[in-house]
Structure formats: structure tokens, C-alpha cells
Design a protein around this nucleic acid. Structure first.
Length: 155
DNA sequence: GCCAACGTTGGC
DNA sequence: GCCAACGTTGGC
């Protein structure tokens, strides 16, 4: 059981889209390190912070749970899709995604707020120049955020 | 819109 | 295998 922080641009797919859908494939990851996290380390039941990036108010906006192990990302085979990859084949797919389901929407815990807590100083999402869309979250950091910043009712 | 940081590509 | 050029990310 691990913890994660998963970025999405709200304009592409935000927390309200997930609230509507309930479950979604975490499609569109085109970075090997992030893919490998999904492929090698994510298990059903892992939890993650849903993070809005590249927007007016970047920050954590929800909690999700991995509900399906990594499998080929269908968008890589769709010629018309933004994420089409001509070098990937169904026999040897390059890109994978897990499925996640919404556990709950949370209040916005902004990037600025995360930065204010020394307990979180080592979070990868706070590191300068960080671009990785999926990053592991230390259990102690997860506990701090859920307990102190998000309050009761979240394990 | 700017631009620093980073990942990928491709020539050699 | 090196590394410059290029494209993308993402905060501000």
C-alpha cells in the first residue's frame, strides 16, 4: 500500500470530471518514470492526492484510490487523439494507465499552503523544476496532510 | 505570456 | 555514448 500525488490539468480532466464519472483511466501519461510508477509500484487500494496543475489555483483537490492495475492506455492507438503514439503497437504498447476512483473531493489545499509546512518540505511536488506528473508521497506526509490539513474522516 | 527546469531526440 | 537543440511542463 503506497501513497501518490497525481497531477491533472483541470482544463483537461479535473476533480469535477471525476466526481461526475466516479472512476477514470489515468490516461495521457507520456513520461517513462511516471509510467513505471504505475506499472511497477501501484497496487489496487493505493491512495493518491488528486492535484490540479497548470491552472490559476494549483493544489490538492481530492483523494483517489487505485482500482485497477496498469494496462495499455487506449489513447496511444487513437490516430486522432492528442496522445496518439505512432511508435506504439497493441502487441507492444508503450504507455499504460491505472484506473482510479474518487474517494472524496476535498477543499483546495493550495501549493502555497503546502509550502508553508516544514513537515512537507521534501515533497517532490514542491521541488523546484518538478514536472513529474505522478510522484510517491511519503506515508508521514500523507498522514500530515490528511490529518492536519484535511481533518477528520479520511484514513 | 514568460521562462527555468527538465526529458527526449537525433546527428555525429 | 555525448550533447546541443528542441519541445513540454507548470508556477508565477
Amino acid at each position: 500500500m503506497r501513497y501518490w500525488l497525481m497531477k491533472s490539468e483541470p482544463e483537461a480532466y479535473g476533480i469535477d470530471d471525476l466526481a461526475r464519472d466516479g472512476v477514470t483511466a489515468w490516461w495521457g501519461v507520456r513520461n517513462y518514470q511516471a509510467r513505471n510508477f504505475m506499472r511497477d509500484q501501484m497496487s489496487v487500494g493505493d491512495r493518491g492526492f488528486f492535484y490540479h496543475s497548470n491552472c490559476a489555483e494549483p493544489g490538492i483537490v481530492g483523494i483517489v484510490e487505485v482500482c485497477k492495475l496498469a494496462y495499455p492506455d487506449t489513447t496511444q492507438f487513437d490516430r486522432k487523439h492528442k496522445y496518439f503514439d505512432p511508435k506504439s503497437t497493441p502487441e507492444n504498447p508503450r504507455w499504460l494507465n491505472v484506473d482510479v476512483k474518487l474517494v472524496k473531493k476535498t477543499r483546495l489545499v493550495s501549493l502555497a499552503e503546502l509550502r508553508r509546512h516544514k513537515e512537507l518540505a521534501h515533497m517532490r511536488v514542491l521541488a523546484k523544476g518538478n514536472r513529474l506528473s505522478i510522484t510517491p508521497v511519503d506515508p508521514a506526509e500523507w498522514a500530515f496532510i490528511t490529518k492536519h490539513l484535511l481533518g477528520k474522516g479520511i484514513k
